[in-house]
Design a protein around this nucleic acid. Structure first.
Lengths: 165, 165
DNA sequence: CTAAGTGCAAATGTTTTGCAGAATC
DNA sequence: GATTCTGCAAAACATTTGCACTTAG
């Protein structure tokens, strides 16, 4: 009733980050602005390396260093704007954690595709399990591994598509 | 109960590994024997570093190199004797995956404690989700993060126990 | 005997950090 | 103007690998 569990969606990621920074005596810099813009330009999963590439291909302003990208990623996670969802190769994979419902992933171990799914029962079960153990849950990470639809079937009918493995 | 989900327990891990190796034209060496003994000496979670330490403290036979431990861990996972369940600090954490039912973990982000839990509904839900997506699931990894019972409460009543953070 | 395994040291690849100069509030 | 940030280069770190020697089968 008086409480709203869903965050105020009219606040942009940029604003939310701004707010996070201010309350901690930190500053909104040009570099951080660029990174946030790039991160929220689309809703795909990404890793640090990809973000570094994207950011360095921008010619609009000064380039952003690798260190700054890593440092900012950390803060975006802390601010609740991103969450790290999986590891792929040996890299941490991130996704938006703001304005989108929590969900989990099926990860194809052949082609690497991440399929999102949401199941409310899982949340409930975990809450119950945590409660039983006196555990104060604040998040979870669920990676289901296997083969996706494409990679399951032999390439007899569709010899075109080749995967990267 | 007509079905037994637990594998044939009369086969020891050592024998199972032996079998795995033989069918692949690989060999059972003194080093691998030592590692398997050490890995299955208790049922605790461990990472590569810890295993290396334990193995190097044995004076019964020749020492085992770091590389060999890593190489053997990989094979033990492949053989279905171990599975990697989480990351702690930046290390992969392993546990027995033979003769024990699959389960998941609550991980305290303060003291690092891993609490095992098993919930059959999760398996079912995941099987169903995977089916819907035409995904051939072969395993999952579920890490629930938060604070354990101990780390939740302020240290007023029990000022003795101090944690490692 | 010969293919597979080992130890070593060096390489890899991602992420972190110390520091001097630059920028924000 | 003080404090926070940045870029750089170097460090840290877990894990992997090339290679000459050893060993299991």
């Amino acid at each position: 009733m008086t409480e709203l569990t869903v965050p105020n969606v009219s606040v942009t990621p940029m604003e939310k980050f701004q707010e996070f920074l201010v309350t901690r005596g930190k500053r909104m810099t040009r570099e951080r602005t660029i990174i946030v813009e790039e991160v929220f330009a689309d809703h795909e999963h990404f890793d640090a390396e990809q973000l570094i590439n994207r950011v360095s291909q921008r010619h609009d302003s000064r380039r952003v260093s690798r260190s700054t990208v890593y440092r900012t990623l950390e803060q975006l996670v802390e601010a609740g704007l991103l969450r790290s969802v999986a590891r792929q190769d040996s890299r941490e994979v991130y996704e938006h954690d703001y304005g989108y419902p929590q969900h989990d992933h099926l990860i194809c171990r052949k082609c690497g595709t991440l399929i999102e799914f949401y199941n409310s029962k899982i949340r409930d079960i975990l809450a119950e399990v945590a409660r039983k153990h006196g555990f104060r849950m604040d998040g979870h990470r669920l990676e289901v591994s296997g083969l996706c639809d494409e990679c399951c079937r032999p390439p007899q009918t569709r010899p075109e598509k080749l995967n990267l493995l």
